[in-house]
Every structure is written in structure tokens, then in C-alpha cells.
């Protein structure tokens, strides 16, 4: 039996995240955990499981499926849900397109990143969800650095960054009017390094594309994009084979790979600590459109 030992930063961050997860589950009628198959949402799911063990999760997972996923990620998702015996709701961007709710972009720059917002808000309305747990971290991007743990969204799914609810101590206010919902971010104070350190400490399995592998890629705007059926290439963009891994996992159309030989969490952790490029700078084309790209998408109801 263990006794009191010196706490690490990870212990404190873990306790904080579990506190937030339990608060939301207790205060909100119909929460859901946004699961993308990315490392942050995998860590979040693991924390949620720990928060309620030995009972199961008191809420389902929700995957907003762009239809442009990496196959390895969808396979990981299905295996994980089966292992945990938890509920999974899949909200499909393809269906939103088929129903005429959104219009698919075309051409080499086409991305379904922005379309996800409509699919997500439709799923929130359909399932009458009152809270969505997200794996966003404040260190990712400067508009995220402004966000509360419990972030209020109006009936249109909008975030009003100039008028956020006060959140003194950890007395979170989860009160809602009909149609409104919350986005809840238990990992707010974690960094990318913390995520990898926690993955290593807890022995979490991640989709294989997070580790070095050989892949057909091509170069665009200084980033390596995967050769993928969903990504149209300009004639000058010639594919080549490279040993890469992904730092973030999102839609194949806007997630860049980096050259790396890191084969396990320990090696990735060492590489992350030494990196002089931020996670988003290295791998997210969607944030490069303007200085306030993320803030604008967040205001509209993006994750």
C-alpha cells in the first residue's frame, strides 16, 4: 500500500483534470466527450475512465468524423471503444454534406476543417447535449490561452470571449438556459510535453501514426502532407517517401507530418522537449490563414 509521496506536476495536473471532469458530469445533464483519436482526447478519455472507476463512464464519446481521417485513427477508435465497452456517437461531415447542410470545398486547398463546426452543432442539437469535453490546451494557441475551464456557448454555439463567466478558485458555474451548452477543457493547463510524459507514465497506447513510420508525402508551404485520397495535389507537388510522424492528428487535408525517427513515447518526449517549433506551427495548416484564425473559428462554435 502506497503512502504520501512528493507530488509531481503531472500528479497536480491529473487531479485538476479529474476534478473538472467530475464537476461537469455532476452538474450537466447530457455531457459528451469529444473524441478525435488524437493524443489529447485519448489522454482525456483515460482521465475520465479513472475519474469514475470502477464504474463506467457516465457519458458517451462523440467523434466528429470528417471522412478524411487516417485509417489508423479510425481503427484505433473502434478498438478502444470496444475495449472500454463505452458508447460512441459518430457525427458525420459526409452526412452533413449529403443533407446539404454544408458544401464540400473542392480543389487542392479543400478542407473539411471548417465544415466540422456545423456537424458538431447539429449533433449537439440532435442529442440535446449540454456539455462537450474537449482536449484543448491553453499552450496550443493564444486564443485558447484565454479560455475558461467551463466555457459557455449561447444557443447559436457562439463563444463570447469578451464576456466570459468569472471562474474564481475552482468554483465552476455550469448553469445553462435551454439550447445553450458548455465546452469543458480539463487539460487547459497541460502542455504538449505533459501529454507525452503522461502517455509514457500511464503506458497509454496511441495510433501508430504518432510514431516514426515510412509514408508517401509531398511538400506544401514548408509542411509535409500525406498522400491521401482526400488531398488533391498541384502538378508540381511530387510525392516522395519519408520517415515521418504526426505531432497532431486531425483531418488529413490540413495535418502536417514532421521528419522524425522517434519510435516510442520516450523518444517523442525527448524530441518534443528539444523542438524549436510549436505544435500548431509544425503541423496545422488551418491556423496559418490569419492571425486570428482560431479565435474566429472558436467564436462560430469550433472545438
Amino acid at each position: 500500500m502506497a503512502t504520501l509521496t512528493e507530488l509531481s506536476t503531472l500528479d497536480v495536473l491529473e487531479a485538476e483534470a479529474v476534478h473538472v471532469i467530475r464537476e461537469c458530469a455532476a452538474e450537466c445533464e447530457r455531457p459528451v466527450l469529444l473524441f478525435s483519436g488524437g493524443k489529447d482526447s485519448i489522454v482525456l478519455t483515460h482521465l475520465a475512465v479513472k475519474a469514475f472507476a470502477p464504474a463506467g463512464l457516465p457519458f458517451p464519446l462523440l467523434h466528429v468524423d470528417t471522412g478524411h481521417n487516417f485509417d489508423e485513427v479510425v481503427a484505433y477508435r473502434d478498438a478502444m471503444v470496444a475495449r472500454l465497452e463505452e458508447r460512441l456517437i459518430v457525427a458525420s461531415v459526409e452526412e452533413s454534406i449529403a443533407q446539404g447542410r454544408v458544401q464540400d470545398e473542392t480543389g487542392p486547398r479543400a478542407s473539411r476543417n471548417r465544415l466540422q463546426t456545423t456537424t458538431l452543432l447539429d449533433a449537439i442539437a440532435e442529442h440535446r447535449l449540454t456539455a462537450c469535453f474537449g482536449g484543448a490546451r491553453r499552450d496550443e494557441e493564444r486564443s485558447r490561452a484565454k479560455e475558461r475551464f467551463f466555457s459557455h456557448r449561447d444557443a447559436f454555439g457562439q463563444w463570447d470571449p469578451r464576456n466570459q463567466r468569472a471562474e474564481p478558485w475552482s468554483l465552476y458555474n455550469a448553469r445553462l438556459k435551454p439550447g445553450e451548452h458548455l465546452r469543458v477543457f480539463p487539460l487547459s493547463n497541460w502542455t504538449e510535453v505533459d501529454i507525452w510524459a503522461y502517455v509514457e507514465r500511464e503506458g497509454l497506447e496511441l495510433p501508430s501514426i504518432y510514431f516514426a513510420h515510412e509514408r508517401e508525402v509531398f511538400e506544401r508551404d514548408g509542411m509535409l502532407l500525406a498522400v491521401h485520397p482526400a488531398v488533391e495535389r498541384y502538378p508540381h507537388e511530387k510525392p516522395f517517401t519519408e520517415t515521418v510522424r504526426f505531432r497532431t492528428v486531425g483531418d488529413a487535408t490540413c495535418t502536417g507530418a514532421i521528419r522524425s525517427s522517434a519510435a516510442d513515447p520516450r523518444e517523442v518526449l525527448a524530441e518534443t522537449r528539444a523542438s524549436d517549433v510549436s505544435e500548431r506551427g509544425a503541423s496545422r495548416a488551418d491556423d496559418r490563414t490569419s492571425e486570428a484564425a482560431m479565435e474566429d473559428r472558436k467564436r462560430d462554435g469550433y472545438f
Binding site: 491553453r138 499552450d139 494557441e141 493564444r142 486564443s143 485558447r144 490561452a145 484565454k146 470571449p161 469578451r162 466570459q164 487547459s188 493547463n189 502542455t191 492571425e291 486570428a292 479565435e295 474566429d296
Partner: peptide, 22 residues
């Protein structure tokens, strides 16, 4: 400009809401 994360903050050169960095 690093921590003033909102458009309105950068435009006005002031901080409106707290930004968290670690």
C-alpha cells in the same frame, strides 16, 4: 503581442481577459 490573444486586445493594445501561460 504574445499573450494578447484576442483580436480586440491586439487592436487596442490592452488586455481584456486573463491569458494563461505556463
Amino acid at each position: 503581442l504574445l499573450t494578447d490573444g484576442l483580436r480586440a486586445e491586439r487592436e487596442q493594445g490592452i488586455t481584456i481577459d486573463a491569458a494563461y501561460r505556463s
